[in-house]
Amino acid sequence: MKRRLLDILACPICKHHPLELRVFEEKEEIDEGILLCTGCGRWYPIIESIPHMLPDDLRDRKEDANFLLKWKRLIPDAVLKEGKP
């Protein structure tokens, strides 16, 4: 994901913009990271350079769990404890 994408993304649920970005791994692009919505408390993973911005019912729970586990040390406590969904 390129940083310029932040200019055009909004939370798919509450439409809040801009989203907050935390980068975990970056080479030419942001390879892994997380997008945080300060409007509704949701979070969206960036996996293999692609932000996954799906509504709650279409999210892949297993992938979400793996992602949180993998980056546990770098993910803000608020996401781990109170993050939605």
Partner: peptide, 15 residues
């Protein structure tokens, strides 16, 4: 390219 997983227009702000 900017590639995004999302449902139609939903992850985009109005633009």
């Amino acid at each position: 390219l900017d590639a995004v997983v999302g449902d139609l227009f939903s992850p985009l702000k109005k633009q």
